[in-house]
Design a protein around this nucleic acid. Structure first.
Lengths: 232, 232
DNA sequence: ATATGTATACTTGTATACAAATTTTTAAAC
DNA sequence: GTTTAAAAATTTGTATACAAGTATACATAT
């Protein structure tokens, strides 16, 4: 008997608000009152508050005590950190991947690549990036490091919003070619190639930062000295 | 005029409960009712709930809908992931550190090492590990990657509880020697040494896992297939 | 026109009340 | 003694009420 599980309001709120933030439907620095969201999502303030609390922990929402809540600005420092973390971890993973021979994994990766090709033909950029995510996750999973992708993914949230901004002018075909080359290197067991192609590939994301951060100036944090606090 | 800022109840609850969890004052798998905590910390359930929500996001607390809340068991999978992430990131950082010459940073590191020596003499293991943390953070900061340590630190929380378990039988002097060797390698600009010593050093933490996980069996998760969920 | 002080409206922080689900206890039947 | 069923107690999930701080609008003085 399949138990139909009712998704709790707090969970729904969390997912929906996060979706709106990373999709830029809610813009960085935009004020989001709790009553507004509660009204919008048809629930009381309590689950909304739970969702905002979680999002605040992830750095996507900033509380300003009794003065309002805002979508966190894109912090270039956080983007820079995410890029560093991602590069170090994913390079280590791709290295192991190239040393692993798994037909199953190769098949999965190829499938996401085909999906990317399709999404380019359709002009569906959102689908492209979701397939892209799946592919990178495959790399981690094929070497038994699935949870590492979760860590990368969390560190990457701020970067994801930046990526959204550059969606229009990104050359998706180039990214697709990168992906094919990475897959080829993995299949061929060519560690050096896998590393170098991936490194270049990951670097492309950072290329447009200067342009974007001046074009969408009010989406970014100005101070630059807002570090996430951490009590030992 | 120095504004005396009142720390909000939710924040106090979060810090206190987290402290009790990582210090093993609250034991893994132990039930922690919201009313109990509210009574204990002299506040209502609302800020307690906020704290637990945040801790749940960090994987230190598990909610079981309407059936109670527990301190999350130590998940060996999470420990393994933390070890991997830490090693890859910190090795990259120590490499850069060895290539950086900063008297200021060297001084800071040496100071934490002296503090460690003092804490061993005093038999204060808690102080030792807090100085240890500060030292590792110094490495990140001296190469301009402070926020990376935050990421490591978060990934590391499960490992921290395991470490607490092994406090008694750990040879702190050996760890101190490791630290001195790492510092020497950094000062000498010896990248290879810095890497290899740190790698061995980080590996020591994992040595006692088998013994501990059978000795304190009920502190650990049994299933081993509890991955943190992540919606793309 | 600009600056300043005050009142008002708004927003979050916290407490409390209530609903819904789960676990535990209790009782009964076998 | 064991199993089953029902009832009670416990626990979280959500809504609402209220408290307290913040920002805004407005009047006033310069």
């Amino acid at each position: 008997m399949a138990d139909v599980v009712e998704i709790p309001a707090g969970e729904r709120a969390y997912r929906e608000i996060r979706r709106r933030i990373v999709s830029l439907e809610l813009k960085p620095n935009q004020a989001i009152g709790e009553v507004f969201l509660a009204d919008e999502l048809r629930m009381s303030r309590t689950p909304i508050r739970e969702a905002l609390t979680r999002l605040s922990g992830e750095g996507l929402v900033d509380f300003r005590a009794r003065a309002g809540t805002i979508v966190a600005p894109i912090r270039l420092e956080a983007v820079r950190t995410a890029q560093y973390v991602r590069e170090k971890l994913e390079l280590a993973i791709i290295e192991e991947a190239a040393l692993t021979q798994s037909n199953r994994a190769i098949f999965n990766i190829r499938q996401t690549i085909e999906e990317q090709r399709f999404s380019i033909a359709e002009g569906d950029t959102v689908l492209f990036f979701s397939a892209d995510e799946r592919m990178h996750r495959c790399f981690s999973e094929m070497v038994g490091r699935g949870p590492v992708w979760t860590i990368i993914s969390e560190a990457k949230r701020h970067m994801d919003r930046l990526r959204r901004l550059s969606l229009q002018d990104t050359d998706l075909n180039q990214l697709l070619i990168d992906h094919e080359n990475i897959l080829a290197a993995i299949e061929g067991g060519n560690v050096a190639d896998a590393r170098s192609v991936l490194k270049i590939h990951l670097g492309r994301v950072m290329e447009d930062i200067d342009r974007l951060s001046s074009q969408y100036k009010d989406y970014f944090s100005q101070s630059e000295h807002n570090d996430a606090e951490i009590a030992q």
